[in-house]
Design a binder for these strands. Structure first.
Lengths: 201, 201
DNA sequence: AATTACATTGAATAAAATTTCAATCAATGG
DNA sequence: CCATTGATTGAAATTTTATTCAATGTAATT
C-alpha cells in the first residue's frame, strides 16, 4: 500500500529540514530575522517557496527552532565544562580557548551567537524566542559557580563573581560579534588577555 | 513676500527632524532597521506618514544620518580622550568609566552602539552605512596608540597592543549590548575588572 | 482680508512579501 | 505497469509595507 519506504522518506524529510535550517541560520545571522525574506531562504536552499511552507509554517518557526538548538548547544557545553575534573582556572581557560577556536573552525558557532543576540536585543521577535533567551541566566550561573570556586581556592581575583561572569560573557559575546564582522580576516586575540580578567599573571 | 519668518521656519523644521531622528534611533536600536516600519516611526513621532517623506526620502536615509551622528560622537570622544593630559592608564580608566556611566545615564549612548553594531554585522544595510562603519578601525587605532604608550611607560601588560585594543572594544561593545538587553535592570560591573585586562593590580 | 509659502494630512497607489493551493511529478509496493 | 502517497512546483490571492499626491491648514506678510 505504502508507495514509499517510510524510513527513507523520513530521512529525506530530515535532510530537507536540515538544509533549510542550515541556510536559514546563515541568513538570519548575516541579515537578521526581519531582513531575511522567505524567498531568500528558499532560493538559498534551492527549493520553491511553496515547499518551504510544507516544512515550516513560518519564518518565525524556523528562527525559533534554530534559537532553541543554539541555546541547547551552549548550555550543554557550559554544563559539560563545569562537570569536567579540572580546576576552575583550567575550566575558564578551556571555555575561552574552545570558543575562540570554534569561531575560527566552524562558522555556525558564531552564527548561533548572533542569533541569540538578535533574540535578546530586539523586541520584534516572536514571544517563544523571547522565552528561550530568558535561560541566558543559566549560563551566567554556571560561570558564576566556576568563578566562586576559583576564588575559594585562591587562584581568582576577588571581585563580585556575578560581575566577573557578566564581563566574561559580554567579552566573549563581543568577540563573537567582532568575528562575524571581520569574517575571513578574523584573528582571535591571545586568550591570555581575557584570562587576565580572572587571575593575576 | 515670504509668509513666514525664515529662521523660525528653519527652527521648526529642525525640531521636527530632531523628533524624527530621536524616535528612529530608539526604534532602530530596539527593533532593528528592517523590522522598524515607516509607520512605526511616524506613529512614535506623532506625525502622518506623508510628513515623514517630507523630511526624509526613505527609512535608509534616517538610518544613515543616525549612524553618521553616532560615529562622529564616538570618534570625537576617542580623539578628545587621547589628547587629554593624562597617563595612558588614566585614559583607559576614563574611557571605561565614562562609557559605563553613559549607558546608565543616557540611553542614546547605548542606542548608538546598537546601531553601529547592526550596521557592522548585517549585510542588508545601505551601502552608505557600510562605508561609514569602515571607520571603525579609526577607533581601534586610537586605543592601540594609548596602549602602546602605556606599555612604553611600563604600566601596561605586554601583549600585542592590537590584540588588547580588540579585547577592549569588543568587551565594551559586549557590555553595551548587555546593557540594552537588561534595560532598567542594568548594573554596570566594577570597572576595575576590565582594567585588569591592561594592568596587574 | 488677501496672498503666499510651505507644513501637514490622509487616502490612493504601487511595490514587496507572505501564504495558500491546485496541479504535477517521482518513487515504490503490489 | 498501475495505484498510491506525499514531495514539489509555480502562480494566484492575500497581506503588509512603502511611496506618492491632491487637498487642506496655518501663520506671517502686505
Amino acid at each position: 500500500m505504502t508507495p514509499r519506504n517510510k524510513e527513507l522518506n523520513e530521512k529525506v524529510k530530515d535532510e530537507r529540514r536540515e538544509q533549510i535550517l542550515s541556510n536559514s541560520l546563515r541568513l538570519f545571522a548575516k541579515k537578521g530575522l526581519a531582513a531575511t525574506k522567505i524567498t531568500d531562504i528558499s532560493k538559498a536552499t534551492g527549493i520553491s517557496q511553496g515547499l518551504l511552507y510544507h516544512y515550516y509554517k513560518s519564518k518565525d518557526e524556523i528562527f525559533i527552532e534554530l534559537l532553541r538548538e543554539g541555546y541547547n548547544k551552549m548550555i550543554e557545553a557550559a554544563l559539560g565544562l563545569e562537570s569536567l575534573p579540572l580546576t576552575p582556572l583550567e575550566k575558564i581557560k578551556m571555555a575561552i580557548e574552545k570558543l575562540l577556536q570554534g569561531f575560527e573552525e566552524n562558522k555556525d558557532t558564531a552564527y548561533y551567537y548572533l542569533l541569540i543576540n538578535q533574540a535578546s536585543i530586539f523586541e520584534a521577535i516572536p514571544d517563544e524566542a523571547k522565552e528561550i533567551v530568558k535561560s541566558r541566566s543559566l549560563l551566567h550561573e554556571v560561570i558564576t559557580r566556576i568563578i566562586t570556586a576559583g576564588q575559594k581556592d585562591g587562584t581568582f581575583k576577588n571581585y563580585d563573581p556575578k560581575d566577573m561572569a557578566v564581563v566574561f560573557w559580554t567579552s566573549l559575546n563581543g568577540l563573537a560579534i567582532y568575528n562575524a564582522i571581520q569574517g575571513e580576516d578574523f584573528k582571535p586575540p591571545d586568550a591570555n588577555i581575557l584570562i587576565g580578567i580572572f587571575i593575576e599573571d
